[in-house]
Computed example of a mutant assay.
Amino acid sequence: MNKLPLRKGIRLLLIIALFLGTTIITSLGATMNPASAQDSKPTIVLVHGAFAESSSWNGVLSELIPKGYPTVAVANPLRGVKSDADYVTSVLKGIEGPIVLVGHSYGGAVITNAVNDNENVKALVYVAGFAPDAGETAAELSGRYPGGTLGPTLAPPVELPDGGKDLYIQQDKFHAQFAADVPASDAQLMASTQRPITEAALNEASGAPAWQSIPSWFIYGDRDLNIPAAAQAFMAERASSKETIVVNGASHVVMVSHPDAVAEIIEHAAADN
């Protein structure tokens, strides 16, 4: 019996199987890539601030992810305005398509300096965040208006090998100072896992502000003890904020205590672009 046709048939089947397998793998790859799967929605990049970490965005992420938004919660180094902004700039370069850049607290100063002519950044959202002008510092802005009480709650600085100092909030003062409208048990977890910021970062002058050329949105609580509400109102007005939300009774961590309100204003910024 001539086995040549049979061999050709088997070879043809293998080629077809290989082609189909490649197609399936390619399709799965597209499905697992958030950016390609959600081309119609911008990527939401969230930058946390001092004494916090990326998990502080968990409540907001829980609102955005089910709605199909690609999301990235950046681990902010908290070492210095320029160096932190450069790090976020590097993250942004790896993201295709439109971006909504969100910053909390000191993270607001970082996003203000991180755009660097990246045309994909379409909106800035300041969540109880600093929006400094060129030459301004976080420390100066927070002390420009009455109501800030962070200074007395700081623990003794941690001396660093390079001569710098790391700052923490005393754990027994963290709840009242930083997260008064969060359950005490949750606030204790936040206090235990807080990440320090260098003293130099809070006193480093900002560069040219991105909010001069990119639309901005602001949300903050009227019970914020880290950045007084009056300071945030001033910065929002100066930046010609497209929408400013003041959450009654909210502390400095408005994204933890009112994640739905924060997610909503982020969606407004996303829909505007």
Rank of each mutant, 00 (worst) to 15 (best):
S40I: 00
S105W: 04
T153S: 15
V254F: 06
A17M: 07
L28F: 10
I95N: 12
A109T: 04
G94P: 07
D133E: 11
I25V: 13
V88D: 09
W217E: 10
S36F: 14
Q232K: 11
E96W: 03
V60M: 10
A134V: 11
V74G: 12
S241F: 03
F19H: 02
S27Q: 07
S83Q: 15
I245D: 10
G151K: 07
T198H: 05
E199T: 04
N113R: 01
N113M: 02
T153H: 08
I169C: 06
L18C: 11
R144I: 00
G143D: 10
A75K: 13
S257T: 06
V127F: 01
A261Q: 15
D162H: 09
V115M: 04
A37Y: 15
G97Y: 04
A138I: 00
S27G: 13
T137Q: 05
I10H: 06
T22S: 14
S36Y: 13
A200G: 07
A139P: 00
I169S: 09
A139R: 06
R223Q: 15
V246R: 12
I227C: 13
E264F: 06
F19R: 07
A73I: 02
A236V: 03
K67C: 04
H258G: 10
N273R: 10
L78A: 04
Q170G: 05
L150A: 07
L78W: 09
L6H: 04
N226E: 14
I197H: 08
L189C: 01
G249Y: 05
G103M: 04
E237T: 15
I266K: 08
Q232C: 09
D272K: 08
K122M: 08
T23P: 00
I197C: 12
A37R: 15
V125Q: 07
G21F: 00
H268G: 13
V125M: 05
L141Q: 04
A17P: 00
T112E: 14
L4S: 11
Y126S: 03
P98W: 02
A180W: 01
G9Y: 01
A73F: 01
I10N: 05
A236S: 14
S40Y: 08
